[in-house]
């Protein structure tokens, strides 16, 4: 079973994302973390080829800083940055690391497209 780890400091954002993932991938298991440290604690228990979705703007370390700690343990093509911060500089950082990118506000279509893109590489 594939596990998806949702890392976002907003509980509401995590709830919405989890709801949409469950709708399109009912067999996936979702886990949540509210910051980078909580995420890193969960990483060893995510099983084979997990998917990790990272919010960018979080208290403590941001999503890109966390991605640097996750790669190469987790392949970058299984990680997506999810942010309303659409600056070219932020997008470039995600692209340089080889991460997926999803622009907030999210909706079911964006989530579906992201999972299709993540899985087309696997």
């Amino acid at each position: 079973m594939t596990t998806v780890l949702i890392v976002d400091d907003s509980k509401a954002a995590r709830m919405m994302l989890k709801h949409w993932i469950k709708a399109i991938r009912p067999d996936y298991q979702c886990r949540e973390a509210g910051n980078a440290d909580e995420a890193l604690q969960q990483v060893p228990n995510l099983g084979e080829r997990p998917v990790i979705i990272l919010d960018y703007n979080m208290p403590g370390r941001n999503g890109i800083e966390l991605a640097h700690e996750l790669v190469p343990g987790i392949p970058p093509d299984r990680i997506a940055l999810c942010t309303a911060n659409i600056q070219d500089a932020v997008k470039a950082k995600a692209e340089n690391l080889g991460l997926g990118y999803m622009r907030k506000p999210l909706n079911p279509k964006k989530v579906k497209d992201l999972f299709e893109a993540l899985e087309s590489g696997s």
Partner: peptide, 14 residues
């Protein structure tokens, strides 16, 4: 409220 404001300002940052 915070998340919504974060989305608004995040887009304005561009």
């Amino acid at each position: 409220l915070k998340e919504t404001f974060n989305i608004g300002v995040g887009q304005a940052a561009a």
